[in-house]
Computed example of a mutant assay.
Amino acid sequence: RADALCNQLSAQGILPILSGGTGYYLMNFICGLPTSPPSSRAIRAQVGRDLDEFGPQVLREELAEVDPNAAARIHERDIYRLTRAIEILRTSGKPPSLFAPKKAIRSGRKFIVIGITRSREELHVRIHERVEAMMKEGLASEIEKLKSLGYSSKDPGLRAIGYREFFELEEDPIERISSAIELHTRQYAKRQMTFFRALPGIIWIEPYPADFYRVLKEIGSNS
């Protein structure tokens, strides 16, 4: 669908701009889809049952026996990538690393990839201010309401940063929870930067006019 829309816009003399989405979506659009086997509902359901019954560590050990590199790359809290790797392993019988995402721009397309960055100091200040704002706007009350409705840390949405800390540190003061959210957000931002640096030909800019005009010139010279 995205390819078709890009073709349609280009035919009208309009430069298509793809913004946002997850890192893997952007990587797959630029470089092409990986050749991993299609997901199986039956195997996915079995992996989900194993996760609930035995926990993520058992799945990680299963993956590490066959593909230690893949197991080492997956963050301990990244349940989605862990379970997907197990699905691929059980479906194909092969190490998931064999189906790693492509890293070169796919043929038939020309991309100008732009990433927005900030200094580490500025980013940390903004993260701190964001967490403070979340707390002031009633995040703790939202968590209590969700708990009263029967939701728990087993629900996928509540494993995200900003929610899971309230379950992991349930007995701790709110200041400790706030600090944990801030720390985990900084760690996540670092992982994001590592991932996006792997996008081929990415041009980094800071969100200021001088850098913006520099990129406009870059686009003009490459169009």
Rank of each mutant, 00 (worst) to 15 (best):
25 Y>T: 13
104 A>V: 14
182 E>C: 08
199 L>F: 11
201 G>W: 04
173 P>Y: 00
136 K>I: 12
99 F>V: 08
194 T>E: 15
173 P>R: 00
76 E>Y: 11
212 F>N: 03
36 S>G: 09
18 L>I: 11
106 R>Q: 15
12 Q>F: 06
41 R>P: 07
168 E>T: 12
144 E>T: 03
63 L>S: 07
202 I>S: 10
147 K>T: 00
29 F>L: 14
120 R>F: 12
16 P>S: 10
116 I>K: 01
184 H>S: 03
171 E>Q: 15
105 I>C: 10
98 L>H: 08
176 R>W: 03
30 I>T: 05
36 S>F: 10
167 F>M: 04
191 R>S: 14
175 E>N: 08
213 Y>C: 04
113 V>I: 15
120 R>I: 13
187 Q>P: 01
120 R>L: 14
191 R>N: 10
41 R>D: 11
23 G>I: 02
214 R>S: 06
2 A>Y: 01
2 A>E: 00
217 K>M: 10
131 V>D: 00
66 V>H: 11
70 A>I: 01
200 P>I: 09
106 R>H: 07
24 Y>Q: 02
156 P>N: 04
60 R>K: 15
90 R>W: 11
190 K>Y: 13
77 R>E: 14
66 V>R: 13
34 P>L: 01
147 K>D: 00
94 K>F: 04
213 Y>R: 07
43 I>L: 14
17 I>P: 02
45 A>M: 03
145 K>L: 12
162 G>D: 12
222 N>E: 12
77 R>F: 15
75 H>D: 15
215 V>Y: 01
100 A>V: 04
160 A>D: 13
64 A>K: 03
114 I>K: 01
156 P>K: 06
150 G>C: 05
130 R>D: 07
88 I>H: 06
197 R>I: 07
52 D>M: 11
142 E>V: 03
161 I>L: 11
161 I>K: 08
154 K>H: 07
193 M>D: 14
66 V>G: 08
90 R>Q: 13
